[in-house]
């Protein structure tokens, strides 16, 4: 069955602060959907309301025909959930932990299948307390899959993982999609969003700034190219270069966002010859999600 996840004007306030502000989204079935935003943007709160963990102050959440806000228990039994700051009993083994979660559901997968699927065979009798970060994350994923869910929510799944463990995790997530499951994940890693997400919503201050495929987002907001040179070259806002939409100085690099790469480069070379400067560290590239994000929010994803 093809179910759509819909958020309609979902709102959550904490005192005077509005953490999630009339957020509306539709997640089609069978894709990986990314919520991209900096820390504190409201991604986790949004996810928790969708998962039925938090009650929105306003708005509705629909999973197919199921009203998640009214029937959180039913939603919880259908959803696969991996939380950002959650833990398991430290003194139980991997297998015992999964058996415990197995007992909570009616519809469920065999514990041994999940263990082998996530490559936890060697660790199945090891205590949770002794697992590495990557192994813990795989256990969390196994626990999220134990009820054979059609939709899986992953909150910052690769936080704190080394590059190798992160790649393994991406393979698992792409595997979930291949099985026809819908995956909703939050991240603030641009690369992760680009590799995994079929569609993305860029979120800041509890609102959706824009939504679409990564390519659409780049096309819409940054049809431009990016030119980077060493900061020591000495370009600053007093230097007038053609076709430059925006300039930014950060660390050792000066970044120029150009609407016409050729014009900007010619202008740059001419300026350098006139002023007698050497151009060092010159690179050009297409705009990325990171640049889109900067354009939309005025701040970097990692901030």
């Amino acid at each position: 069955m093809q179910k759509t996840l819909r958020l309609e004007n979902v709102t959550k306030r904490y005192g005077a602060m509005t953490a999630v502000d009339h957020l509306t989204l539709t997640v089609p079935s069978g894709i990986v959907f990314g919520l991209l935003g900096p820390n504190g943007a409201g991604k986790t709160t949004t996810l928790e309301m969708v998962e039925g963990l938090r009650r929105p102050d306003d708005g509705r959440v629909w999973w197919g025909e199921l009203d998640v806000v009214r029937h959180p228990d039913e939603a919880r039994s259908q959803f696969g959930v991996q939380l950002q700051s959650s833990a398991f009993f430290e003194l139980l083994t991997v297998k015992e932990t999964l058996e415990l979660f197995h007992s909570f559901y009616r519809r469920r997968l065999a514990v041994s299948d999940l263990i082998s699927r996530l490559g936890l065979e060697e660790k199945q009798n090891a205590r949770v307390g002794g697992l590495s970060g990557g192994q813990r994350q795989r256990l969390a994923l196994a626990a999220a899959l134990i009820n054979d869910p059609e939709v899986v929510f992953l909150d910052e799944p690769s936080a704190g993982l080394d590059p190798q463990a992160r790649r393994n995790l991406w393979d698992v997530i792409l595997g979930l999609k291949a099985e026809g499951r819908t995956v909703v994940l939050t991240t603030h890693y641009m690369e992760e969003a680009e590799v995994l997400a079929d569609r993305l919503a860029i979120i800041d201050h509890g609102r959706v700034l824009d939504e679409g495929t990564p390519r659409e987002l780049i096309q819409r907001h940054m049809p431009a190219s990016v030119v980077e040179v060493s900061r020591s070259v000495g370009i600053n806002s007093t230097v007038d270069l053609p076709a430059v939409r925006r300039m930014e100085e950060r660390d050792e690099v000066t970044t120029l966002v150009s609407d016409r790469l050729e014009d900007t480069l010619v202008g740059l070379v001419n300026w350098a010859q006139r002023e007698g400067r050497a151009i060092t560290g010159l690179t050009t590239r297409n705009a990325t999600l990171e640049d889109v994000f900067l354009e939309l929010t005025g701040r970097s994803l990692r901030e």
Partner: peptide, 9 residues
């Protein structure tokens, strides 16, 4: 640990 239990039925 309790948060994780809350996300189950």
């Amino acid at each position: 640990v309790l948060r994780r239990f809350r996300a189950t039925p």
